[in-house]
Every structure is written in structure tokens, then in C-alpha cells.
Design a protein around this nucleic acid. Sequence first.
DNA 1: ATGTCC
Length: 468
Amino acid sequence: MKDELINGNDLIALGYPANAVMKECKIILETHLSTLPKEQALEKFKLVLEDTQAFTEDDIWKNVAKILLSKPAKVIIELKDLSKSGTYNIFGQEYIEPGAKQQMQLAMRLPITHSGALMPDAHQGYGLPIGGVLATDNAVIPYGVGVDIGCRMCLSILDIPLYHFDENASKFKRELIAHTVFGAGAPRLKNRADHAVLHDPAFDQVPFLKQLQEKAAMQLGTSGSGNHFVEWGIVKIQDEQNEWNLPTGKYVGILSHSGSRGLGAQVAGHYTKLAEKLCSLPQEVKRLAYLSLDSQEGQEYWLAMELAGNYASACHHDIHQRLVEATGAEVLARVENHHNFAWKEQHGGKDLIVHRKGATPAGKGVLGIIPGSMTAPGFIVKGRGLATALDSASHGAGRLMSRKQALIKNNWNELRSMLKDHNVTLIGAGLDEAPTAYKNINQVMQAQSELVDIVGTFKPRIVRMADA
DNA sequence: ATGTCC
């Protein structure tokens, strides 16, 4: 081949895919076509592309033919131009790291995205940021829900007198240890669980779920690890108009935070992989791969997601029930909500799929729980239904430090002193969960005063988390 | 988040 050289762009212009075939073409160019004029060489490439089948046995071209036939060019879905992606509202702008905003901006550019919002506890995650809310059109993003599907809060307000709790603190601590199970992969202790959710028809409707049924039974009522907890604490009801007609004042309560354990994690992993296979997005957003709700896979994910949500809910109820029975308490009121989930909702008269990944549903009048930290209060909230926040609020204070960073910066002396100051007994946990690793919950609540009203607070007193 | 890549 004389004078001008053929390059990759020439081949792509002919219609060649930009994949492994390029390497083979380069070898042929160098070893067999080096003396041919450019036009003639291009003609040859064109012929191979048009009649690939005829070259599958050709000594020179068989590798090229094989790749052309086996690997059809993958169509990468294009992101919307920034100018057409629409804006999203950020609450608590000053508390949010740039990485989380960049992730949200990318999510806004998906072709399926309708609208979005970022909560004041937001920080970087896989795919959608934690604290990200994304409304899409008839499609679900497994990583827009998160790895721990149905991760949620549950608060039981009890009839136990405060003085009884204080006088018997060691018994309450013992029962908390006896009736909660922490640790990754940890199975339930002793008695085998039975619960309607373990017989959910979804286990038979979705083949992938069948193999997870036994694991789900083994782990029912367990809490897992990470930032999950079960705690005794003091509820303070301050809204006189509360729905339970409870007199304002202090109550003993149980607050728990956990999700769908191995069941949800396996579902998330499986359908994320499937989505990435079926929905090729540019590298920087590949974790936002989505499934159409009209597809078999999308419908399966939705069913599996709802099962994982119900399972997570059952886990909380099981934990609360055992603690309530062990202490002879009665439940006066209960507040609970998912904060890693997707819902079918109407916004502005349009049917949408609303993903909340680390965000609390806050539709008008909807109750929820936003935890603080092991020493900072959590909040019982009532949604204000702000449209620009897509009826959402934060799911907590949000991390200030990464786990790794927190392990380096925090120390046990400081943590022990904080626990003492706040009259908190801690069982388990590591320095990565120290209160100093989290944002200031009061600032976060201030930043979302348009999103939720405060009904009451919860001050942790005996906290159990997974061992470090 | 989960016994951490089918």
C-alpha cells in the first residue's frame, strides 16, 4: 500500500465496528496489503464486510470474518445533551460533595430520566448517589434502588414507663443482645422462622428467586452489618396533632435500621448484571443500566424488588416482636419506611418510576423516620409533599467521611467519651460508625425544612451494631 | 450492602 495509509477511522467509515476486529485488520494491512493502493485495499475491506460469510474459510480473512459474524457492533445508548437533560433540585447544596452532584447530573442525562432531586445527606455511591431521587419513564434502574433493596427504618413506640426502662437498663441490654443477630451472612439463631413472606408466590414465579428461598428463611429477623442497628431509645412526641393521639412527651422506643440481607443483595447483583448486558450505556454511567418495565426482565426485577422490600419489612417486625415479647411491652404506635426502593407514582399528572436510593418518601402527610447517629437524635417526620423534591427527604445525616477515612481519623477514647456524654451504651460497632463520621443531623434537618415537618425525636440509649 | 465475581 503506497503513500496514504488506511487507519481505523477509514474502516469505521466503511461500517466496521470499533472492537477487536481492528487488531486483526491491522495485521492484514501490515502483512498482506502493504503494497496495495489505498483505494484497492479499501475495496477489499468493503467486500469482506458486505459478504463476510464468504470469508469464513479464507486463510487471510477468516479471523476478521469470525469477529464480524460473532460480535455485532454493540449499540451504546447515547446520553442526552446537558442542555436537554433538565435540571434537578439540590437541597442542602453546601453539605454535598461534588462527586454526588456529578453522579446526579449524569443520571439526569439518561434517555429514560424525567426528573430528579438530591437530598441534603447525599454522597457518592455506585451509579446513583446515596441521597439521590430519580424519576424515570417506564424503566427501572437496579442500581438506582441500591444493593440493599428495601433497606428501611422501623420505630415502635412502647407503653413502658421511662423509670422502668432506666431501672432495668441491664435487662433491656441483655434482651437486645439475646434477640438480635448481626454480621454479614449471619443466620438466624435457634428457632426456625416462619412468616408469610417466605411463602410469597414470587418465589415460584421468578426462577432466580427459588434458590434464595432457603437463605431468606435462614436470615429472617437478622440485621446484617455496615450501618445497620437495633436500639432502645427515648421517643419524644412533640406534635400535639399526632395520628396516634398520643399525649406529647417521652416514651421508650425500639428503632431498627436494616434491609433485605442476602436475598436483596443477590437480586440486586443478578439484575444489575442483566441490565448491564441488555442496556449498554457509556462507561461512566454503566452502573445506571436500566430495564424496561415492558420487558420480561424488568417485570421480574420489579417482582423481586417488591419481595425483597416485604422481606426487609418482615425482618424488622420479627426483631421488634421478639424484643417486645421479651420485655412485656405493648406497641402504642409504629412508624416505618423504605429508603432504598422504587415506587410507581404520579407526579405532575404523569405516571413515573421514582427511585429513592437513600431517601425517605415524604409525600404530603406521609410519616417516616430519619435517623441521626448513635449519639445524635433521629427524627419522626411528616412529609410536606414538595414537588421539586419529588416528595422525598434525606434518609439520615449522611456520611461525612468514608469508612476508610473514619477508621483513620476517629479513635476509641473520643468515641467512648461521646457515648458517656450522651448516656449511650454501645454494643458492637467500629470507628467507621462513630458519630463524627456523619454530618450534623440538625444542619441536615434545617436544609430540608421545606420537605418535612418534625413530629418527634428519638434519642438512642442502648445501641447494637455489627462488631468491627 | 453482601460470606465480598457468575
